[in-house]
Simulated assay, not measured.
Amino acid sequence: MHSRRLLQVIAITAITSSVFATPIELVPRGPMENLPRGAPLVTDEIILLDSPAFQTGEGGEWTASIRMFTHIRQINPGIVTGAVVAAIQALGVEIGDKIDNVLERSKLFFAIPRSGISVSLDVVGCDSITVGETKAGLLERSAGIGSCSGSSRQRVISGSAPGFFKKRNFEGLLFQSPPTGFGIVSDVDDTIKVSHVLDKKKQLQSVFVDDHKLVDGMPELYSRLDGQLGNPSWFYLTGSPYQLYPTLRKFIFESFPKGPMITKNLTFTDIPSLIKYIGDGGGLGEYKIAQMEKLHDFYPKKKFITIGDSTQADPEVYAEIARRYPDFIHCIFIRKVEGADNTEERFSKAFSGVPRKKWKVFTEPSEVMELDVVSGLCK
């Protein structure tokens, strides 16, 4: 038995090493599917994303929406980073002394995903659960966690996996949100973080190289809304792929109210595809509408304030959800970004059929700061 396990470890390590010898193209996914299924192996890494939780049934039981990524431990991510550096420098992006940022933000893009993984998770004060199996390294599944003890709305959710010499622990946060009251959905790029999504070169610089920069005034606005609405439930909805989750989570938690972040489930197999996606962000509107529909399924009786910007599809997305579920969307705030389509024609068309008092387009966060949002005076 031990010999068989050792052979598995050696085989996985060999496969992983061969991948990083040729970082531009990953090995075909086929061989990965033949690896053992079930509990994680000693070579596996697990990222547990923060989870929203919602109440189901009449007994007050809670359900958590679990998201997880499992991949083979990277032997030398610096080799992959070197390929990314070469690719983005070819586009004229300056790296300078920010190579550590490039290393940290690029390492998950070429991680080898592990399918068929199941893990047991402990939720403080709630029932333990077992979730699986991952597909292409990803898992997104709702699981009952019982009635939960205490009144905390933020709990640690954790697990562990075998490792060399000692177990490796992984954890995230579980955010319990009651069925009624207020919730806030915020976009990330160019809403709270300067991302330059309208300029491909500057956007790549923002994604991989530069230290993340706050949009002026937005932390103060979010703090004001958090107090005004009585500690609402926060959700961050971004078109960024899950590979950027660790760095974006750190950015959000340092300056904004904490809440789960919803990212895109995308796996890249080569650097040009990655750069192309970051440059054009195709299908963003449909993706965000689908995620807003999920939030409506979780919290149909909640009142949501949605906050976005004018660079991409936020006005159209939030307006569409407001037309579908008028009582679900309480206010819509759209930040004007210089260089975007900020014409009256665009906003009139986007918000057709949405009551004018429900939405506001602003340039400075101070324009929203003193509005009586609780009463629905959003303009």
Results as ranks from 00 to 15, higher is better:
242 Y>V: 13
191 T>K: 04
209 V>W: 05
246 P>S: 04
209 V>F: 07
247 T>Q: 09
204 L>C: 07
187 D>F: 02
235 F>N: 07
248 L>F: 03
245 Y>R: 05
258 K>F: 04
208 F>W: 09
197 V>A: 10
212 H>L: 13
195 S>Q: 04
255 S>Q: 14
235 F>R: 07
257 P>M: 05
210 D>M: 12
170 F>C: 02
254 E>R: 15
201 K>M: 00
225 L>C: 00
245 Y>H: 10
252 I>M: 11
206 S>G: 05
226 D>E: 05
185 V>E: 00
219 P>V: 02
176 Q>S: 13
195 S>K: 01
259 G>N: 00
186 S>I: 03
188 V>R: 00
206 S>L: 01
221 L>Y: 05
182 F>A: 03
241 P>T: 03
239 G>P: 00
249 R>P: 01
229 L>T: 02
177 S>M: 09
170 F>M: 05
204 L>D: 00
191 T>L: 00
236 Y>G: 04
200 K>D: 11
257 P>R: 01
184 I>A: 12
180 T>P: 01
211 D>T: 09
251 F>L: 08
237 L>N: 00
258 K>M: 11
232 P>M: 07
223 S>L: 08
250 K>D: 10
178 P>M: 09
171 E>C: 11
212 H>G: 06
248 L>G: 08
199 D>F: 06
166 K>Q: 14
175 F>Q: 09
162 P>I: 00
233 S>A: 15
255 S>M: 10
186 S>E: 01
166 K>H: 15
251 F>I: 10
231 N>A: 13
229 L>R: 06
246 P>G: 02
169 N>M: 12
178 P>W: 05
255 S>E: 15
194 V>N: 09
197 V>G: 07
164 F>E: 10
197 V>F: 07
169 N>D: 14
240 S>E: 01
177 S>W: 12
203 Q>C: 13
162 P>N: 11
180 T>W: 02
171 E>Q: 15
183 G>H: 11
226 D>F: 01
188 V>C: 07
220 E>Y: 09
246 P>E: 02
179 P>Y: 04
256 F>M: 07
215 V>Y: 06
242 Y>Q: 14
229 L>S: 03
232 P>E: 03
162 P>S: 00
196 H>P: 05
163 G>R: 06
236 Y>Q: 10
198 L>A: 14
165 F>L: 15
231 N>Y: 13
250 K>C: 10
213 K>E: 12
171 E>F: 15
223 S>Q: 12
197 V>R: 11
191 T>A: 03
205 Q>T: 06
252 I>N: 05
256 F>T: 13
177 S>F: 13
172 G>Q: 10
239 G>M: 06
211 D>M: 12
234 W>D: 05
168 R>K: 12
219 P>Q: 08
212 H>K: 15
258 K>L: 06
169 N>L: 14
